[in-house]
């Protein structure tokens, strides 16, 4: 893979200059204020951000607009739109009689649409399951609320991959559920290697990210507002619909963001529970980088993903301008 790192020297020098510039800036700030200011202590964080967030982002941008030789090109994006792009170009060069063979490859777009669809489904299911859960957890009159909180937190102590693999032992043909079904005299069911299993894995893993922001916004809410609503004639349904729900919107938006973002970039879960029958955009990017070793197309796909996430974030931000829900990066 190292052959992919053949960046022209100017890119390397720009990055080095950027790093040194940052360090110089830090030193100057300390000098100018005649000693260490409070802001100085933020510099490790800033350095971290520059090294591991900004520089990688710049590299992704660089790779997506260059070919393996480091020359500027838009081919990577054309590749995204038409997965047969290079073959089609070959056909075009071979002459007009070959033009009938030119056919746009829609694999990348299909996978993107499928990923967005799965992420939407996952977010919707998480919201439908998570809101009631958060509501009961936040209800002070229900004694099991705090127990529920702990039950939601404990699985998060386990590794994400481990939790996903654990589902295999439940769902596979000789797994716990099928064994039980057979024991009870039913036919065993194909539980794994389909969209349902992938969705189950996603919902299972991302549900806490929906529950906790909503839970926080509900517990933050002033209980006197609920009394005021009842005082003004609102029964429990009206109180929920006109007061509780609108006031928990920031939490809902935060939850949607925190579930949708990892959902749309999910990888590994489709491979484990979907058995490779289905592929999501995250898998596609991983595939381009690690299997094909094509860093340029992989970067272009990542950039498209990032832009899509940024767009969805800005839409969500509009719905919650104060960022009250918290947790929105």
């Amino acid at each position: 893979m190292s052959q992919n790192l053949n960046m022209p020297p100017w890119v390397v020098w720009t990055l080095v200059a950027l790093l040194f510039g940052f360090i110089l800036f830090g030193i100057l700030t300390v000098k100018r204020s005649n000693g260490i200011k409070r802001s100085f202590f933020a510099s490790p964080y800033t350095l971290w951000m520059v090294l591991f967030t900004i520089v990688p982002c710049l590299l992704i941008a660089y790779y997506s607009f260059t070919d393996p030789n480091g020359a500027f090109t838009l081919d990577n994006f054309k590749n995204f739109w038409d997965s047969n792009y290079s073959v089609n170009q070959l056909y075009a060069q071979m002459g007009p009689e070959y033009s009938v063979l030119i056919q746009r490859g829609t694999v990348n777009i299909d996978i993107l649409v499928y990923s967005l669809w799965m992420a939407l489904l996952c977010t919707g299911i998480c919201l439908a399951l998570g809101y009631p859960a958060a509501y009961f957890m936040a209800d002070r009159q229900i004694k099991i609320g705090s127990t529920l909180v702990v039950l939601f937190i404990i699985p998060m102590w386990m590794n994400f991959l481990l939790r996903t693999v654990a589902w295999m032992t439940l769902l596979e043909d000789q797994g716990l559920i099928n064994t039980l079904l057979k024991f009870l005299g039913f036919h065993s069911a194909q539980l794994m290697y389909n969209d349902g299993a992938v969705l189950l894995g996603m919902v299972y893993n991302f549900l806490p990210f929906m529950v906790f922001p909503i839970y926080t916004s509900l517990t933050k809410m002033d209980s006197r507002l609920l009394e005021a609503a009842q005082d003004l004639g609102a029964n429990h349904f009206h109180t929920f619909w006109r007061v509780t729900m609108p006031l928990s919107i920031p939490g809902v938006i935060s939850g949607i963001t925190m579930v949708f973002m990892p959902s749309v970039t999910t990888f590994f879960i489709p491979r484990i529970l979907g058995g490779g029958n289905t592929m999501m955009f995250g898998d596609l990017i991983e595939n381009r980088f690690l299997t094909e070793g094509n860093w340029n197309v992989g970067s272009a796909l990542s950039l498209i993903m990032m832009i899509l996430i940024l767009i969805s974030l800005s839409i969500l931000r509009k719905a919650d301008p104060e960022g009250e829900g918290g947790g929105i990066v």
């Binding site: 005021a228 005082d231 919107i249």
Partner: peptide
């Protein structure tokens, strides 16, 4: 409470923060 013919002015008012003045009164 929602069926009683009484209304309350709460300590610190408990106005609905997501509604404007008109909608608070019209609630």
């Amino acid at each position: 409470p929602y069926k009683r013919k009484v209304n309350t002015i709460f300590q610190k008012y408990a106005l609905f923060p997501h509604l404007n003045v008109y909608d608070n009164i019209a609630f």
